[in-house]
Design a protein around this nucleic acid. Sequence first.
RNA 1: GGGCGGUUAGCUCAGUUGGUUAGAGCACCUGCUUUACACGCAGGGGGCCGACAGUUCGAGUCUGUCACCGCCCACCA
Length: 845
Amino acid sequence: MTGAPGRFSPDEVEPRWIEAWERSGALRADPNSGRETYTIAIPPPNVTGSLHLGHALNNTIQDVLIRYHRMAGKEVMWICGTDHAGIATQAQVEKKLAAEGQDRREMGRDAFLDEVWAWKDLHGSNILGQLRRMGFTLDYSRERFTMDAPYAAAVVRVFVDLYEKGHIYRDNYMVNWDPGLGSAISDLEDEEREVTDTMVSIAYPLTDGSGELVVATVRPETMLGDTAVAVNPNDERYAALVGKTCTLPLVGREIPIIADEYVELDFGTGALKVTPAHDPNDFEIGRRHDLPVIGVIGEDGLMTAEAGEAYVGLTPDQCKKRVLADLRELSLVRDEKDYLHTVPFSQRSGVRVEPLISLQWFCDMTALAAPAIAAVENGDVKFTPPHWGGVYLRWMNEIRPWCVSRQLWWGHQLPVWYRGEEIYVGSEAPAGDGWERDPDVLDTWFSSALWPFATLGWPEKTAELKAFYPTQTLSTARDIIFLWVARMVMMGIEYMGEVPFSDVYIHSVIQAPDGRRMSKSLGTGIDPLELIAEHGADGLRFGMLLMSSQQDVRFSPEKVKQGRQLVTKLWNATRLVAGRGGKVGAATAPTPATLGDRWMASRVTEAVAECDALLARFEFSKLADALYHLVFDDFCDWYLELLKADEATPEVAGDLLEQILALAHPVMPFITEECWSVLGGEGLLLTHPPARAGAIDADAAAQVVAVQEAVVAMRAFRTDLGIPPRERLAVRVVTENDVKLPTAALGSLAGVDLVEAGGSDGELRVIPISFGRLEVFRAAEEIDVEAERARITREIGRVEDELKRSEGMLANEKFVGRAPAELVAAEREKIARFAAELAALKEQL
RNA sequence: GGGCGGUUAGCUCAGUUGGUUAGAGCACCUGCUUUACACGCAGGGGGCCGACAGUUCGAGUCUGUCACCGCCCACCA
């Protein structure tokens, strides 16, 4: 045994079992076993990342499912691996280089990529080590990485294929440009922040000298790229101006005044300056009216030569000030006021997103989306909780082209070559001289989208692919439903002809205890490794499950502590059972003979059914709660007390504990494995058959419930009257309605001596119970009259309240007339019982 | 602006198809060195279930309105 008496040291015990599980070979999936398979593909963590609470929760959920199905005899495969995480990883390495005074542009692409690979080799095993420490039984022997050669080949193949099918194309389009990163980012990678800008009204003189048109803008610097002014076609104020031109101040360009429905009549001045190069809406207006596109902000985030000599090279902010000063000098500023609005910032670099027109590669998603929409509508893919299916469908039904190119170096370089105006897309460089490969790489999510089948060897027809695709369950947080889940469904259907998973479980997001998001940068992060050090991996796993929910929850360390306490409890229960000769691994289940054994066996049966049902519905917090109460309340508080009183047998106790350990193993693999071995278990609980469900023994259950009620009533009686727990009391049991009260059990659990009628000395006190009464005989001098009066008075008050409530209900004619008859009858019965109790109580006063 | 989720004990959360007496853990109070466990055992206090209105014999549960919190989508310059 390990640790001080009553304690259990996870730090000493847990690492041993991790080794044993891996050594056993049970984590390696066998595609040829012929057994029914159960597969989960892990959401691949960032290769250089480290474990956070999101991983702890999500992977605990997956490990519970994996272990549960493994014990159930399935061939399980938990696909293991990591993601190259283009932007995040590149940023980490660039930061490190910057600290050393280096810059990737100076060192060149090849040297930089060498650095990233070196970084990956150094930090790449970190997170997998941490996942191991949590006890997660991934198939580590088949670890995959999204940049491994075979995986990369699959990525290229898909890109080329989508290009050949006409879904992938190159286009000038407005993208979210991240000037900090120097790359386009997808519209899923920005976030809104509130900003107070100045809304400026600027007068644009009409070219014919007949007046001016005042436009309102928060970005005066972009006026340098204006190619029109738009008004609403129904705006009577400006109707006469449509078709005329005005002269763009500072630039002198003559630009048309056009009518477009997009312009709001009642916002600003009702006249909108149109800058197709720098605003998504203006870009659309420009396309509709065939306006020229003049880019005045470059990909470096600075003003271009197109902005004019006076402004080139300035930042947009500097330019804004200069433009405003120049306009004021010309007396063209008509109004300035503060304006609070939200604008997009890059989640990646934190810099304000600059909408720019840029030549990028896109993937049209409409064709791919159609079957993926159907798959959710017809239930091939089922979301839990279900409303996320609706969220998925709303997004899919309005899906937009996906900008798949990123101006990064770390990632899958586009399989695209250029020679002059020629474009070649293929897995190898085309023949001939002068071809240059596109330097851009693919959005990381492009490769992630292939995860469920590329990890299994696709496009080769591997045994693994045949055995383990499609997978069964995908567990993830909601923030990547669009980025990842939807795209996996689309790609899975396109390339495998089948959805990649049948269930998507969306778990809650764990917030910081104060309700803010958990993040390192906010300082609200909590390190799972510290929690493991303090409470063990089992405690953390249990705590995370208890916190898991359908809604977001705040992290509460008490839940982890609760898990730790359950670990300790199991450990101590095991010591007791082992100390009395209980063992596991009986060839045939011992027959429960005593009442205690029969009852507990029945309870275990119920618990097994309950846990099966909860797992099938992904109700993990209820699963953890059910295990907790099974162990604490039923097994320890009642059953082991019955065992001590010889109302249960060690043989059965060992067997029932075995079932409980098997039931709890998916949740708390370490402690259950340890207890199992202490109790003489052969082999590993890891591959043990699941907890056995026997029969429900209603008779035993009824008797134990009766004992429990009587024991609790006795204990309360003692407490109220200040009778020490050790003082034996003489009690006579009187039951009604043929209820059999197992008196031996009652005597030992309540610490009383049972006596027969009339034979006892002392004063009689009556404790009412639902099926009769307990009569307590005590010597007059031992009775604390004050305490007794207080107790009885309190009881009378309680019963009177009940009586009043019941009578009130029955006095209501409508209730009696319309409520179901059995409810009314039940209420009448209650009245009779309360009245009898009340009378008995009053007699004692 | 649209959509989704939430608001239950001091704290973190459960509450099945509406049934009248709303649960758990932690925290709190009172006992207890009961021979597995003080990371324990026993007993106990604590809630007008966000507000208002409605449906119903009966509402934490159903309907509507409102308030506040969170998230997603769209992004009126």
